[in-house]
Design a protein around this nucleic acid. Sequence first.
DNA 1: CTTTTATACTTACTTTTGGTAAGTCAAAGA
DNA 2: TCTTTGACTTACCAAAAGTAAGTATAAAAG
Lengths: 117, 117
Amino acid sequence: MSDFSNIEACPVRNVLDRLSDKWTMLVILVLGESKEMRFNEIHKRIGDISEKMLTVSLRKLEADGLISREVYPVIPPKVEYKLTALGQELLPLIDTITQWADRHMQQILHNRQQYNA
Amino acid sequence: MSDFSNIEACPVRNVLDRLSDKWTMLVILVLGESKEMRFNEIHKRIGDISEKMLTVSLRKLEADGLISREVYPVIPPKVEYKLTALGQELLPLIDTITQWADRHMQQILHNRQQYNA
DNA sequence: CTTTTATACTTACTTTTGGTAAGTCAAAGA
DNA sequence: TCTTTGACTTACCAAAAGTAAGTATAAAAG
């Protein structure tokens, strides 16, 4: 049983803190859909993420080594993102959650309605 | 390939949006450690969550039907929380991520340092 | 009999995180 | 010369989360 309250030293806290922001897990999922993706492709695929937050999310994932960023020196700019081996390892774990989501969404929506009544 | 940009209709977005806040996944993990838990127990186990946010997180999880909340009419108050069957289904999926975290934390910390240099 | 303690919250206020819209850069095309 | 293109950046505003204090009530302590 890990010591969740020791935030610095606890791997679980360390990783969950990084995944527990508004966009990170979704960005990983999206990147898992194709070999590599350009900034605007990811942006369109998600739809409602701001450019600012997409930039921030991608930079953090890059810093952790979960994605790689390749800049082509052309104009207009071209930048390709893809999951690293490490990132690809994480992908199926998040994907399992999305499958669970597909199976249980109806139930959850129902529960929410009950609760608000 | 689901339509992530249709936030209302997409189960993945719907569930990820709920899990993608600062504390939800960690609260589920902690509740998975014992049969049931009282408010202050959860609070101490996590350590740095505020009482306010713990209340908010628990209420949302309750609304979705992932945890149940039992109030004993005593003074001082006693309230017990535990995962429902639905919540217990989700637990191993989050737990798999924490195991991945344990395996790769060193590498990730190393990557972060490299990036900031 | 007054004060303290215990537990699970609220509430008012501040800080951090995220959203919005406009701007930047440099070359190619009209 | 003016517009378009793509990947951002920036200044400013809104939403989420943190902080510290307060609430309720009865039993136990002094």
